[in-house]
Design a protein around this nucleic acid. Structure first.
Lengths: 263, 263
DNA sequence: GCCAGCAACTGGCTCAAGCCACTTCACTGG
DNA sequence: CCAGTGAAGTGGCTTGAGCCAGTTGCTGGC
């Protein structure tokens, strides 16, 4: 994908790139608006005088750029630019928790006229992965944690997964360790009752291609990356009390943080 | 990439996925450690009794997952998991600006024993794109802005691009509008002198596959997404005074924010 | 009028073969 | 000793062929 790889040393583009370029500019110009169907692979091949495999390769390039998606048996379509669901620091806001009965996730999804669903698929007691243990703080005297796995849907499309790790000494005896239902005010209200009001958060954000498992689990189309957010909840005494790893489809979701510049 | 697409309806995996799986687990198990060279396409084809194209397709799957990278003429190698350069809110910290002479970017790169370089490639007066104008606030009486384009390198690898937009009324007459060199304390020190100390930031984060241009410009390997950060600087009076769009290679960089939960 | 089933379309995947371009290295001849 | 050349290996890309598997719509039988 270097410029040197685009051309076979004379000035001409490679056939597959050439076809891809044509389609790309047709999309950019609006000749192929979002939702439009591309010519079939066989039609493209005929039109540009290349093998079907070459037309196919051109489509693959566009797929990898996230411009189009293919549907087996139906055709290849220009991807709709859906507005992103944006999540940020207000996700944890105390007032927002009390005012609207809705969780921030539900609120954001509702804002786009879609219907939200959150499933807690498992609650177990486990040993935390290394990076999580690290962020939960030094003392691994009792290193076991409660692991809660949550799946988030919008209109039945899986949108993100969150895996929360809570030190056993905190979760022990509370609904955190046992129940999928969190009750009024949800997760962070429970932490507050247990003496851990969330006052600071740390969010380590990466982007990468999904693993095989994530791609199938979140039914992520080809050419769509994920946002990988390692979130740490910190209480009023500066103690980390919870770590969550979010894996989010990057074509449906984004982040929106606003914060003071501290000094 | 659905599970249904992995198998041709009897239980057997497709050949390409099969080969990919074998390689994937060899990588996971450490048989193929980071930096190791995979067998050549022709060797894989022979070993698994498939066509070279099929072996090639298997490697493509791994490339798309970001597990391996190919080097023309040399071979295919397991990608090194390089520690990410992490950027966060302290990027704008006043004290950090004064204590170390280094810019936050240089500091983070130096921390990994690499050498940083920042090039300001262009300074122009332009009309801002719509999303930028929106974030710079309502009054588009004098809608023109100074556009500064900065390229960031680590050991001569291009790592990210930042395009900063500054309202003309702010930049006018200052080095912001004219000079690539920012002087002591760099960009945000100049804003402070002009009556706009940076006190809040907003960061809208997305991830996506790079465009064709970005892929070539940042020499991004196949299968690596970018982080797209739309950053807004806000002064003590709540006025946005600068918007920067960062496009960052996601295999080399990440974000690390820590912020209070506000109420 | 309905619906089962077929035909014709779509993309998904594989094959076998060939040529090109980059890399490495050993072997030349100066 | 060195520079130059060329062979052998690598991935990059294309061809043209074939079969499979979803999708759609028509058509003929009931």
């Amino acid at each position: 994908m270097n410029s040197s790889a685009d051309r076979p040393s004379d000035g001409t583009q490679l056939p597959s790139r050439q076809v891809a370029s044509e389609l790309r500019s047709a999309i950019a110009s609006g000749d192929l608006p979002p939702g439009a169907k591309l010519p079939s692979e066989r039609a493209l091949a005929a039109k540009y005088g290349v093998a079907r495999n070459t037309a196919r390769e051109a489509i693959r390039l566009l797929t990898d750029e996230g411009l189009v998606t293919a549907h087996h048996g139906k055709g290849v379509f220009v991807r709709e630019k859906r507005r992103l669901l944006r999540f940020g620091s207000e996700r944890y806001s105390h007032s927002l928790r009390n005012e609207t009965g809705l969780s921030p996730y539900r609120a954001e999804v509702a804002k786009q006229g879609r219907t939200a669903r959150v499933d807690c698929t498992s609650i177990e007691r486990v040993q935390p992965p290394e990076d999580v243990a690290e962020r939960l703080g030094a003392a691994p005297a009792e290193p076991s944690v409660v692991r809660r796995e949550n799946w988030y849907y919008a209109d039945d499309d899986p949108v993100q997964v969150g895996v929360t790790y809570i030190p056993w000494e905190i979760a022990e005896g509370s609904v955190l360790a046992t129940s999928a239902k969190m009750g009024k005010g949800s997760l962070y209200a429970r932490f507050e009752e247990l003496g851990h009001p969330i006052t600071r958060i740390r969010e380590e954000v990466s982007a990468r291609m999904p693993t095989h498992e994530e791609a199938t689990g979140l039914s992520i189309p080809d050419g769509v990356p994920v946002l990988d957010v390692l979130h740490t909840g910190i209480d009023h005494l500066g103690r980390p009390f919870e770590v969550t790893r979010f894996v989010m489809r990057a074509d449906l979701t984004g982040l929106d943080y606003t914060m003071p510049v501290e000094d």
